[in-house]
């Protein structure tokens, strides 16, 4: 049995590369806005988690555990389809739905990152600061927090890269990012192999340098402690 050899036709890929690439605008916009909102919300969740008051701390923990166990895609469907059914007043555009989903999910991830960064600072540091006569607030601000931030930044860098990749799922609610446009082109040119290979390469070229760059940027933080 012989197969006709597959003739690659990369012209389909080159001709449409610009169109597909234009989707990166949405990807970056979504990632950036979500990261900003997710940092703020994540801070609140982290504070709740570490609160002295039991109900608040429990809420923080439940929030984090919930989003750790729920797939992004189901969450997206829920926000896009179930939420408007539940609260008819809400009308969400695909971008808004995606923004909402990624933000609340990111907040859970960030809260854990903040918490682990803080816990990673050795207790002796606070003792030393207090022994010099600093108030607990001063000790936190001048000694503990700077060190916690240094530990958290690399984690946040990873989170950013992960988020950048995760935004690809918005294709299912017809948000015109890279993936959506690629699907569009693949369907019209009947060249899924070339198109999707192109998309993989595009994502790789966008993501990998960010990953490496952030790694290098934060490497010096580890040396300094």
């Amino acid at each position: 049995m012989t197969h006709a050899a597959y003739t690659f036709d990369w012209s389909a890929a080159w001709d449409n590369a610009g169109y597909v690439l234009a989707g990166v605008k949405i990807t970056i916009l979504l990632t950036a806005t979500t990261m900003a909102a997710g940092l703020v919300l994540g801070l609140f969740v982290a504070l709740a988690r570490m609160s002295q008051r039991r109900p608040i701390a429990w809420f923080g923990l439940a929030y984090v555990e919930f989003f750790r166990a729920v797939p992004l895609l189901i969450g997206l469907y829920w926000i896009y389809y179930a939420l408007p059914a539940l609260v008819p007043a809400i009308k969400l555009s695909p971008f808004a739905a995606a923004f909402l989903l990624f933000t609340v999910n990111l907040a859970a991830l960030n809260a854990e990152a903040f918490r682990s960064g803080l816990l990673a600072v050795p207790r002796g540091q606070q003792a030393a600061a207090l022994s010099l006569g600093m108030s607990p607030a001063q000790a936190f601000r001048r000694v503990v927090l700077p060190q916690a931030v240094r530990r958290v930044l690399p984690i946040l860098g990873n989170t950013w890269v992960g988020l950048f990749k995760d935004t690809a799922i918005v294709v299912v609610i017809a948000l015109a990012d890279i993936t959506y446009r690629a699907q569009d082109v693949a369907l019209t040119t009947y060249r899924p192999l070339e198109i999707y290979t192109l998309v993989l390469i595009i994502y790789f070229l966008l993501t990998w340098p960010q990953s490496r760059g952030l790694e290098r940027l934060f490497r010096r933080f580890r040396a300094d402690g």
């Binding site: 294709v171 993936t179 998309v199 790789f204």
Partner: peptide, 11 residues
């Protein structure tokens, strides 16, 4: 690790 799983699945 630098490409989305979704795209890999599609591919």
């Amino acid at each position: 690790r630098s490409t989305p799983l979704l795209i890999q699945l599609i591919w």
